[in-house]
Write a protein that binds this DNA or RNA. Structure first.
Ligand SMILES: [Mn+2]
Ligand SMILES: [Mn+2]
Ligand SMILES: [Zn+2]
Ligand SMILES: [Zn+2]
Lengths: 163, 163
DNA sequence: GGGTTGCTTGCAAATCAATTGCAGTTGGGG
DNA sequence: CCCCAACTGCAATTGATTTGCAAGCAACCC
């Protein structure tokens, strides 16, 4: 898991959310729409994959926004449900715009770090059975898949790839 | 997630592994069986839940074993497949003895941190379908459940519980 | 049993992600 | 245009985990 994000491809599910819609959600809670926040939200909008705060900071190279501000902003957006945090087990938090209601999971390449969105989810019936069996309420889950992507499988030449 | 481990109950699935069997696996790889490693393995053997390095260190209060040594030992044991690491999303790694072949998952109480072992797993057929769909190989998953345990649900009196 | 050697350990310093105190800015409701 | 709570940059701090290094010790060989 090295190179952060290859595919600057067209964000599959996120591109639709207009920036104005996001900023409105800020105003609605008496949060201020600052240039930094707009810039951060815009970076998230144009990326398909979850980004680390450091990656967001790098993407904002020009508009010098402090790393601490990004950390604080992500915390705020997380609390508002605007972004979602995911954890790929490398000790660094990643964020992506929350897509309406439903959550989703990821398939991460162990070699190059490429991320694929996965819509399949843990069977709801089974999850409820587990909760009931142990008397838990308000149950939720955290699920990520790991493997080796097609490009990292065959050691043939081609575009530079991670070790 | 505050109080580390309530239930010092009988380790359900781990207690069977004799310490000698574990130390033998060390010798087999030209690793040395030191007093510290035996002590660490013994702590893991007698706990049913995943423990943080700090918790292991606390459990070893008497036999003063350095925290750095515990970190290094867990890294070694992880590489040997003797222990497994799990991540409850609070930025602290937890370890438990690996149980032979099959992995398992956990149900964690958001209030008190109590951990329940969960044997249900993500449907293998679906996982394979996901891997095939995206051309990934060597696929695996990381899955944990979160909720509120029975004791933390009703605000009635009784034994002290987390806020 | 004593000696050799490479794996280990304790201790302290270094990394790294993430958080926080503080003083100076600024968005935006009035 | 004014005012003030919400923000921000910057530097210091916290907490987990890692690492350099010299001393220690288990495993192995005579
Ligand atoms: Mn995603
Ligand atoms: Mn377990
Ligand atoms: Zn799901
Ligand atoms: Zn599983």
């Amino acid at each position: 898991m090295n190179q952060p994000c290859h595919q600057h491809a067209i964000p599959r599910r996120l591109v639709q959310q207009p920036l104005s819609e996001l900023t409105d959600r800020l105003r609605a809670r008496s949060r201020k729409v600052t240039g930094q926040r707009e810039a951060i939200l815009d970076v998230l909008r144009r990326h398909a994959n979850p980004l680390t705060n450091r990656e967001i900071h790098a993407a904002l190279r020009g508009s010098g926004c402090d790393l601490a501000t990004i950390y604080r902003t992500m915390h705020t957006l997380l609390g508002m449900g605007v972004v979602r945090r995911c954890d790929f087990g490398d000790g660094v938090a990643r964020f992506e715009l929350a897509t309406g209601d439903a959550h989703h999971h990821h398939l991460v390449c162990r070699a190059c770090g490429m991320v694929v969105e996965v819509d399949d989810c843990f069977p709801a019936a089974l999850e409820e059975a587990i909760a009931r069996r142990h008397g838990f309420v308000g149950i939720a889950h955290r699920l990520e898949f790991f493997g080796v992507c097609p490009r990292c499988q065959d050691p043939e030449p081609g575009p530079p790839k991670a070790p």
